[in-house]
Design a protein around this nucleic acid. Structure first.
Lengths: 249, 249
DNA sequence: CAGTGGTCTAGACCACTGG
DNA sequence: CAGTGGTCTAGACCACTGT
């Protein structure tokens, strides 16, 4: 379960968060940490790699690692689940169910979910609330296997997190691709969110896959323009951000 | 310069791009690659780490690594430079100079650039074009040291890339933080981009720092809503994406 | 110059996959 | 079951930093 390098990373992360290693300070050297924990240098380096991937520290040959700042980053699961994200920022998540149907996929859905001809999908439309205020319209297509589970969940769970329940049922969300663009509110968007048509919305197209890269869901989420922003850290060494020439349809 | 693990990573990346390892196929095992190149297994693993960070492959205990797809990812420098990005998608970049001034920073600029009291900034406003069409308004504040160089560049370079010239002059851009949100076009935005006021724009706030995390520039870029989208790959293991509760001012 | 991180080697044991 | 990736050790040499 918990490995040594992960425990070292957690300890360092905690030290950054609690002020032991404030932003701008230097972390202990690899050899010092290795000796202190009775670990090999390579293991300590694995721990540092985790923190660097989170944008918490930077490193240069010849000097100890520099602390950049406390953890702003949210975990994959917070990014994936609206409910968890809401909880992490101290807001109360809410849901207004709009529709759940089982139907034939559109061409776009079939392509993004890599469906064989003839298979069906479950399509869920909901309005998500933060402390009672509508902030996002969610339109998600689930592959049939997952959608069958969603049917049972969404029916009775009220404002519960679909993501959390699916994970309890053994569904593993491993990778996601998020495409963010600006869009003008359509009539239905405006009605569901309680804003004027043509208001500026932030659109997130999300495709989530399992550990073997098999698609699980494909979602078109539209946020109020002033309700949300997405932040990315990148560096010369590691980056996952792409700027593409146009929103993918 | 070029290290063994980077050469291995490049070779594997090329194999994925040219069809030797098509999406969905499995890569050679660590031990096989190690033996074939006379390298240690740890070195091969370093190479795989690079590809995984780019979202090109996934791995699970017990099976060979899976090829996810060809490289969609753009490099840090393409993300950082509009001109390089334009070139990478086959468009001709253009620039319309609006203003370059040396002045006192606003409070926000002073904070984001970590300025000492009394220092000044250079503020550059430009309209960026793709194949002659205005697609983005760029408003960038440079720290004084960099701005002095920008003054010379922007004056005579025409449609040349400021970023590329700064790098030739020895400025090293190492980290960046991008925050993306939706915003309504203000009067000046609408005029510069040739759209109606209140159109939906995609706003990118960008803060770029050097290898020691010292701020170099802080920019507010506003794209036509249908001109651009940002895409992020993330996974349970590595992610750099944040969803924050509100646009940072 | 001593200290540091970057790279690389050559082993080891384990948990997991798939036939 | 053999093969694979995940973790970990214990070394080594180098380039770079800061004094």
């Amino acid at each position: 379960m918990s490995t040594l390098y992960r425990r070292l990373a957690d300890e360092l992360r905690a030290g950054i968060a609690n002020g032991t290693y404030p932003p701008g300070s230097r972390l202990p050297s690899e050899s010092e940490l290795a000796e202190r924990h009775g670990a090999a240098r390579g293991t300590v380096r694995q721990a540092f790699t985790v923190l660097a991937a989170d944008g918490l520290i930077s490193s240069r040959k010849g000097t100890r690692r520099l602390v950049l700042g406390p953890a702003l980053r949210q975990s994959f699961s917070q990014l994936h689940s609206f409910s968890r994200w809401a909880a992490s920022i101290g807001e109360t998540p809410g849901v207004r169910m709009v529709e759940l149907v089982r139907r034939e996929p559109t061409d776009l859905e079939a392509e993004r979910l890599e469906l064989s001809p003839g298979t069906r999908i479950y399509h869920l439309t909901r309005v998500r609330l933060l402390s009672g205020r509508p902030v996002m319209v969610e339109r998600t297509a689930y592959v049939e296997r997952i959608g069958a589970l969603v049917g049972g969940i969404a029916a009775d769970a009220g404002d519960e997190s679909v993501t959390a329940r699916l994970e309890e049922l053994g569904v593993v969300f491993a990778h996601a691709e998020h495409t963010v663009s600006a869009i003008t509110a359509e009539a239905e968007d405006a009605r569901l969110l309680g804003v004027r048509p043509h208001s500026a919305l932030l659109r997130e197209l999300r495709r989530t896959t399992d550990p073997d890269n098999r698609p699980l869901e494909w979602s078109d989420d539209r946020y109020l323009g002033d309700a949300v922003a997405f932040t990315v850290h990148n560096s010369v060494r590691a980056s996952t951000l792409i700027r593409s020439s146009a929103p993918s349809r």
